[in-house]
Simulated assay, not measured.
Amino acid sequence: MAILNTPSAQSQSGAIKIIKYIAILIAAFILISWLNPFVVINAGNRGVITTFGKVNPRVLEEGLHFRIPIVQQVAEINVQIQKGEGDGDAASRDLQQVHAKIALNYHLIPDRVAETYQSIGDLNSVGDRIIIPAVQEATKATTAKYTAEELISKRPEVRDQISQFMRDRLLRHGIQIDEFSIVNFRFSESFNQAIEAKTTAEQLKLKAERDLERIRVEAEQKIASAKAEAESLRLQKQEITPDLLKLREIENQRVALEKWDGRLPQVTGGSVPLINIK
């Protein structure tokens, strides 16, 4: 007996095909999502490709990129400016103990992140594995060239030398320094006391020198005043003549007569006369 292709049978067959297509699309979507062949590199980052663990020298820029699923993996690396700090203990040229605290801003060179990733691995450990050892080595190498007092008086020069040492050291690992500063130089307590005593002595010496200069100036002023007075007396003595003395005597007598009230002085007896002038 023949089977007829009724409209109902045809519609069922079409529905089954549609369901198969939908199932295939869903399976393909799930497979693509699981394999994840696309990768997005965010702003301020770079991507490092590894093929079966081997680092690809090509660096992925920001944006959307394709990778071979399962075969390739992409590590996203931050190339923005970061802050790092480190402490270093060293000795000065005169064998004083020095403790330096260094602060710097740095970033990974974008074009070299694949090289940096290959040599360092976990870039979150850059501070412990690279920055701190570089600070300690730079501090020891630089402070050994200066005395403890020079480390204070020549601080900008010391900072520049430590900075240049660290720039050369970190550049080998693809790290570039943006800002660098010496937060603090700390010395032993005995050295700090010696510096304080020396500063006090210098201040006292400076005060004594100022006092000595003031006394010298005052003495010179007195000498100059005495010389001027002596010169004045000498000139006056040269101008005294018998006529001038006679004139002065007459003037004194005239002044005495002007002051006399017309009464004669009273004299009492005795070997020494007593004159009562009211």
Rank of each mutant, 00 (worst) to 15 (best):
F191W: 14
K20R: 12
G14I: 09
G47T: 00
A27F: 09
V217P: 00
G63H: 02
V59H: 11
A2K: 15
P242C: 02
T199E: 10
K54V: 12
I120F: 03
R93N: 15
T268P: 00
V71Y: 13
A2Y: 06
N45V: 01
L233E: 15
R248C: 01
F66V: 11
T200P: 00
I70L: 15
K259A: 13
T50P: 03
D111G: 02
L171Q: 14
F187R: 07
L274I: 04
R248L: 10
A197I: 01
S181K: 08
L233S: 08
P133C: 04
N36Q: 07
W34Y: 14
I130S: 14
K140N: 14
S181Q: 11
L244Q: 07
I223N: 02
K145H: 09
Y106L: 05
L235I: 10
F165A: 15
D111V: 00
L247I: 09
I152F: 06
E231Q: 12
T268V: 05
Q236W: 03
A91K: 14
K205T: 08
I81Q: 12
E189Y: 03
Q73V: 06
Q176F: 02
T268I: 04
E85H: 14
L60T: 03
Q236A: 14
D168C: 01
K205I: 03
D87Y: 04
E157W: 03
R169M: 06
P156D: 10
R167H: 04
S232I: 00
